[in-house]
Design a protein around this nucleic acid. Sequence first.
RNA 1: CGGGGUUUGGCGCAGUUGGUAGCGCGCGCGGUUUGGGACCGCGAGGCCAACAGUUCGAGUCUGUUAACCCCGACCA
Length: 568
Amino acid sequence: MKRSQLFTRTSKTAPADETSRNAALLIRAGFIHKEMAGVYTYLPLGLRVLENIKQIVREEMNAVGGQEVMMTALQPQELFQKTNRWDDAVVDNWFKTKLKNGTELGLGLTHEEPITNILLENVSSYKNLPVLVYQIQNKFRNEKRAKSGLMRGREFVMKDMYSFAKSQANHDEIYEKVAAAYTKVYARLGLGNTTFRTKADGGYFTEKNSDEYQTLCEAGEDTLFHVPGTDLWYNEEIAPALAPKIEQSETEKPLEVKKTDGAVGVAALVKLLGIPAEMTTKTMIYQTNSGEIIAAATRGDHDINEPKLRKVLGVEGLKLADKSIIQTVFGADTGCAGLINLPDNVRVIIDESCMDRVNFETGNNKTGEHVINVNWGRDVAIPEQFYDIKTAIPGDIHPESGLVYEVHKGSEVGNIFPLESKYSDALGMFYLDANGQQQPVIMGCYGIGISRLMGVLAEKFSDDAGLNWPKAIAPFQVYLINIGDDESVIKRAETLYNQLQDKGIEVLWDDRDARPGEKLADADLFGIPYRVVISPKTGELSEVKRRGDKAEASLLTIDALFDSIYHN
RNA sequence: CGGGGUUUGGCGCAGUUGGUAGCGCGCGCGGUUUGGGACCGCGAGGCCAACAGUUCGAGUCUGUUAACCCCGACCA
């Protein structure tokens, strides 16, 4: 393509309110256009990158037997009512719209229900299973806050694949096969060394845990806990954790009630009472969907982790208790809940971090009162069991290995979920086995955020001068520059342009009547792997330089140039 | 959804104590230039987020709304 025909232009400045590196660079380079918060248009160069990413994903999904389809963005509510995912209280980031006749529709945020519905019309025998179906399509999610450019949008491009298996064993086999395909995808994108399979919560897709693929990235929004020297990675939300022990040689002091009017929260208590956060106790009051009241306590430097607490309790529905309920049960305001004077009808779950402390603090369950110098056995009964119900923080220990976690920032570039038969059962999909018996269909779903990947790649592969795409996804392989308007120079540039294209190499020829500095700066900004310069100085040769290479450019013959592009 | 901030040509910004808008980049034309975003001259382009108010007069003051950004919460 000739640069003079490209309608987009580059800018020395990024929009002032675009603070994320990926969006700032991509907008400056004219790869994308921001339509609104979290919604971007892909311009010609950006679309080429996006399509290259898609193609790699597509090839690897095809390689494990995935069949590509494209489902609708408009979704009927009936299907989602069958799985209880229509209600905004259950799935809160739906975009919903209406038909003229008032019927409510959803804008696709995920497609388990529609694909299952399609498959049940087509598959009813063991002879047809397993099946893998995927699509690459725009997803709509009404995020409360879009941010980080392409990395968290409200409309974004996603590959979602769904598997339908005969049995759990059959599913497990498929699941691992897809996991291996994911590893290949990230390797081909140049992210192989920085992307890790990470254990995570299943969220609203499944009660089971899921596996995320996390790429190390400072701009990422996830916190990852890695057990050093192993391939064990956990998302913060589920990382099992032991808090480091506190060294104490104190003897037990007498219990003391402190007036703490208005002091709510650990930070305020630490200030008021002059004790370290580790000696405070954070007690949160929850209510289960069966109405049971739960007091969950952890050391003040940690937070209660609701998914962990839910698992300990063995309940699905759990929410922070209303103020009125706390008033009724405890006769006290929130902020003063603690382990002392707990009513009998409250079930207490205490985190292991609270053990082994001498003279600690807790709420007194009376408005405006906390107690200090609390001790186990004397003031509070030692519970039969301590649990791990806290969210891990840096410094915490991986229980099985006893090693202190390494903590990293990551961006979730893929997520795979075992779904069991949750959706197939709900939608009435089953199959007949060889004996004519009805059997459940075991499903899995597998996402890759295509547009998020583009953002992550822009974050990771860029420098002060601009983008620097891996060859596999660059919009063009060669940025050809002619310097000066000398007739012979233009002639040679045109010849080379044609020769490269004849060889199947994608070339963007900057044929504009522009100054050299501008062309060279754009070559860097675009991040095209090879820059080839033709000028009166280069004679019959071409000057070649890899983007980001510090070394001098080399002068090559046409044959050497092809060789260089094919083999480096 | 809570807290903070922003909104003036395509982009980045300035607009004093209220007196109907300027600069740089970019863009067009002419000329001189041509290996890291050149220089000179001429020129086009904005009713100042929207609405309502105060005032003889509002980009500047008041109110409401919206959009956008950041932090947090949330996140399949």
